[in-house]
Design a protein around this nucleic acid. Structure first.
Lengths: 337, 337
DNA sequence: CTGAAAGCGCTAACAC
DNA sequence: GTGTTAGCGCTTTCAG
């Protein structure tokens, strides 16, 4: 029932080598021979055995993507970018859902080591720098999304966290807000750090004093944003706007406001990050930042596949893509006096 | 840099066969030998070559899942169920995002044919019955989620569409609704058909006349639901409740009501299906049906891996899991008089 | 342009 | 318990 290459060879009266050449588009085969071989392939319903190909050729034309959580729209979009790009370049993609478990994430690195994939993309990886650098030093082909690392052989694709955060804060300042709280994500993550940086940068440029009391941590979760906002309120310091480092936390803030009877945007403006679909449906709709997630996956995939095929690498190792502020109801008004 | 099994054998002073036995937990190795081998594995930082294993053993311990669209929460949850289960049973998972493209879906079947995966799970597949039956007849191991097929070798995991749809309609009838519209999904899909069946069944049992004019099609999309609702209104037939075959369409109905100034739930009750996260955030929140998506993936995965290992198959080929009606604001009131 | 043949790295008979 | 060895199905030199 399962035919092999040699069966095709016999049926078409040529050698296995020729069949292989036809199947791999080597140009050095007559049209006539090609046709004969293809006919036999059809008739036998032949499929090349992937394992044998991989073993012999020492490559799989497959790249892996490890994401924290496949349920999160941010990652799902990145996957689309990777998958579509890889598909057009003739590569397959293995998607690995670490399911918020760093141990699983580490497990998946084995796919590289045992040559199941030719390259690996890590989106918002929780792995330590040492691990990644060690892999790269061993000659493994890896790339990062949403993270930067100091190693010549690791391409990184990032969004302009500082820039868009600064845009967000400038937008709020333009609307007359002078006391803007910032709710941070996981404290040790680059995204959090850079977004804070953009926040501070904008304040500084507009000469609005930075007040550390207006910074709280929300761990990127709705619950975390909710609690962080309540802590801010309890401090008794006046503020009229919140910049949350992602939409989940912004949703938490929105919920807290509703419970506390604080009108949005009249008494409190909110801006998040990610352009989560919910931000459009909730009332009031939430302002946010739209990151080109698809593009993050796309650019890195092109780069990595280029590396795999020893293409001359023109571009930058660190690729930064632009994001866009999306103003909705939650920050559409002037600050209260 | 890359060591092979034979290197480990040499270093530990045993034969390749023994190393293989140690690595694959064959019990017939002394503890002492095992330790020596493992030491060499450590020292050499040895990783077995997957392609060679696959080629030699004729299996990959990998199962594939093909989903229509990885962005859709319904599928993401199913994937979690498959992945977690496979993981604990020592299987890897390849996730394939067909990206709403039937051609890609068909492409992915090649993974089975070329032995990249041992089994394939198709969630809400758009493939024709013939294709699936042909695969199964060839001895390929496949399983379906959200679809039924007449073939002894294809296990299917489904939700109780008829049952929960009947529950939905009974709930609306209990609230005094007598004119309940139904918005269907893709007309040729089993889910649509069975949900319609449940709707009709409940009406019949409660002796409420079925009116075909109250049925419209919305293709499972928000836009489709929106348009379908408008068509229903234009007909001028009075109705006070809508059962939409999924939440996307229910969102469309909700939007249309807002635009037309129809108060929910006072003038119009709405119930959807899927327990999409947005249904909780929108105002008014939407009643829906919570399907055990994780379980769908879990059950089928257990079944398929069992088949791969020739375990005696006790259970049913067709596995049906129970769903639960979640009543929220959009259907929380008595029908208007 | 085509064929012969070696061998990718591993496992599973089969011996001992 | 452990070793020897054939061979999984393919690609790729090297000849011709």
């Amino acid at each position: 029932m399962d035919h092999k290459l040699i069966d095709v060879a016999k049926r078409s009266g040529v050698s296995p080598a020729t069949v292989s050449r036809v199947l791999n588009n080597s140009s050095l085969v007559t049209k006539k021979t090609t046709e004969r071989v293809m006919k036999a392939v059809e008739e036998l319903n032949y499929y090349p055995n992937a394992a044998a190909k991989h073993l012999r050729s020492q490559r799989t034309r497959t790249i892996g993507v490890i994401v924290q959580d496949i349920n999160v729209a941010y990652f799902a979009e990145i996957i689309k970018g990777v998958q579509n790009t890889a598909y057009t370049l003739g590569y397959k993609v293995i998607i690995c859902d670490a399911d918020n478990n760093p141990e699983k994430e580490r497990d998946y690195l084995g796919l590289l080591m045992n040559r199941t994939v030719d390259a690996l993309i890590l989106a918002s990886s929780s792995l330590g720098d040492e691990v990644l650098i060690e892999l790269a030093d061993k000659g493994q082909c890896i790339g990062l999304i949403g993270r930067r690392i100091a190693h010549d052989n690791i391409p990184c694709c990032l969004t302009d966290n500082v820039q868009f955060s600064s845009d967000v804060v400038n937008h709020l300042l333009d609307n007359g807000h002078r006391h803007i709280a910032y709710i941070n994500g996981y404290p040790d993550v680059m995204d959090s750090y850079e977004r804070l940086e953009g926040y501070m940068k904008a304040l500084k440029e507009r000469m609005v004093p930075f007040r550390p009391e207006l910074i709280e941590n929300g761990n990127f979760s709705e619950e975390g944003g909710y609690e962080a906002f309540k802590r801010l309120i309890l401090k008794g310091i006046p503020f009229t706007a919140v910049y949350a480092a992602n939409d989940e936390m912004a949703l938490g803030v929105s919920k807290a406001c509703r419970e506390l009877g604080i009108a949005i945007p009249h008494k409190m403006a909110i801006v998040g990050v990610d352009n989560n679909r919910i931000t459009q449906y909730i009332i009031p709709s939430l302002s946010t930042v739209n990151q080109p997630k698809f593009q993050l996956g796309e650019l890195l995939t092109i780069k990595l596949i280029g590396k795999l095929n020893d293409q001359p690498d023109d571009g930058e190792r660190i690729m930064i893509v632009q994001s866009e502020l999306v103003v909705r109801e939650s920050s559409s008004r002037q600050a209260p006096d």
